[in-house]
């Protein structure tokens, strides 16, 4: 057997949303590297699409509310 198995998306502007195992939370990761956890997929999309508003260029383990002013 030698089947095609395409890799997952590799483009430059890919949004990723991980459903955190064992929880009800969604971890949204923007293509800029910013991350934020949510409990509702509608909020996830609001935040992702607001890029760069409320996004930081690197991971932000503390998590910040969407819309919060950048320091």
């Amino acid at each position: 057997m030698n089947a095609l198995h395409p890799p997952a998306l590799t483009g430059g502007e890919v949004y990723r949303i991980h459903w955190v195992l064992g929880t009800d939370r969604l971890l949204a990761v923007c293509h800029c590297g910013a991350e934020h956890e949510f409990e509702d997929p509608v909020d996830v999309w609001e935040w992702l699409l607001a890029h760069p508003d409320g996004h930081r260029p690197f991971d932000d383990p503390a998590g910040r509310d969407p819309g919060e002013e950048a320091p």
């Binding site: 990723r16 949303i17 991980h18």
Partner: peptide, 17 residues
């Protein structure tokens, strides 16, 4: 099972693993 959703907006592709 954990699920990851990837979205390439520009090329119009949604990938759910």
């Amino acid at each position: 099972t954990p699920i990851t959703t990837e979205v390439d907006d520009k090329s119009g592709v949604v990938y759910v693993s």
